[in-house]
Write a protein that binds this DNA or RNA. Sequence first.
DNA 1: CATATTCGTGCAAATTCCTGCAGGAAGCAG
DNA 2: CTGCTTCCTGCAGGAATTTGCACGAATATG
Lengths: 251, 251
Amino acid sequence: MLTSQRKALILDRLRWDGQVIAKVLADELDLSEDTIRRDLREMAAEKLLKRVHGGALPLSPELPDFTARQTVSSDAKRRLGTYAAKMIQPGQTVFLDGGTTNAEIARQLPKDLAATIVTHSPTIAGELEHHPAAEVILIGGKLYKHSMVATGAAAMAMIASIRADIFFLGVTAIHPARGFSTGDFEEAAIKRHIAHCSAETYVLATGEKLDAASPYQILPMKDVSGLVVPSDIAEESLAPYRETELALLLA
Amino acid sequence: MLTSQRKALILDRLRWDGQVIAKVLADELDLSEDTIRRDLREMAAEKLLKRVHGGALPLSPELPDFTARQTVSSDAKRRLGTYAAKMIQPGQTVFLDGGTTNAEIARQLPKDLAATIVTHSPTIAGELEHHPAAEVILIGGKLYKHSMVATGAAAMAMIASIRADIFFLGVTAIHPARGFSTGDFEEAAIKRHIAHCSAETYVLATGEKLDAASPYQILPMKDVSGLVVPSDIAEESLAPYRETELALLLA
DNA sequence: CATATTCGTGCAAATTCCTGCAGGAAGCAG
DNA sequence: CTGCTTCCTGCAGGAATTTGCACGAATATG
């Protein structure tokens, strides 16, 4: 194992577990504690972590609960969310994909809107706790931790039994030629499946997602009904999309 | 547990509960009281808290606001959660019912525990986001807002395909003669269904739930394997339960 | 005032840390 | 290929930190 691999692993571990213990890691990687300690010392000097007796901690320890909860959404995302929420008519069935942008839709939803919201994200379902008028259908399955959505055969089957009027698809990248894409194969498959089970598909995207491509295509441009982008986006970056069939909506 | 983590935990606890008791903390973290006392002394020297006989208090007694208060678990609930988390063995499949007490189990689960956690509560699924070793299966269905759990035929069907080793059942009331009960018919039905699909069923209960009854029975006393209650509960209130078959576990 | 906790200090054992050093692998020039 | 340098790693041993325990003092409680 290379030093830099080890250091990357340490950072990863810090991010997920919130701690690294020298002895444990040495044991696990079958290295002497000294080596680990050396790594930790160096990384502390590079301000990548905080060295403490026995191991190391992340620099900005994400305090449990309260700091994590108050996720601040950018102004652009909130505007996208508000716009999308207004697209939803009473009585409609809406499928909300996972992701922070779609969470913003849930948050901006009028409290008295009587619509059916389907989602495979427990996070988004949680946002809808205090929307008494909304009927929420939760899609079950094996939870894919990275993006916190239910996946797998069970999820696919449950999705197949639902036909939504609108699907708000979350993507990581949009490219005029390569369509809508994301970083995980399984995730791409399930998103595609949802789109096929829905009458219309819309994508909300902040500027930095445009003209980028991720490894796995979800859908080509033509399979998406509309793209919602912040209104303050540069006109020239939109030009390639004006030539496609999809509707460009400015929020 | 690293020293600085302990200190962070103490600060956190102070902020949310408004107090820290040396003995309780020592018990909970499985450390000597001396160690805790030392921490408190050092932190008092750093002006991070106010040392008092028996424990410590925050420097500026800012009372926690209401919304915060609700997410705070009482000391008793946290102890119940910790106890239950320790009952779970690596490799087991555990079904976690909804409710704040069961959320505490999820929160207290060791980050590196490789177990399968099944739940029909999006809230609890959310708590497990940063438990990389745990496999989380989310049960889908129509979301019942009052208690935030998936219900209905879809949920029932998905549950039927799973056989858990342990089911931690959440209830609103426990009565020696009338068994375990809750306030909603549909909820009672689904909880009963889960219990029947699990090898063992355990209930975690704080004192105020004992000797109370809600309209809809979930299970009679004899169908539950064990009842976990806080250890500081009055012995006479436990007497009626000692005569039943279920195991009484003191957390 | 009597009793039970809780506190603080000194101390010993265990753990963790750091420094210096040596062996081995990789790269490179001659 | 040889010799040199550089980097990484493990190890020894002395320093520093942490932890639990014992015992007498201080503090709460009734």
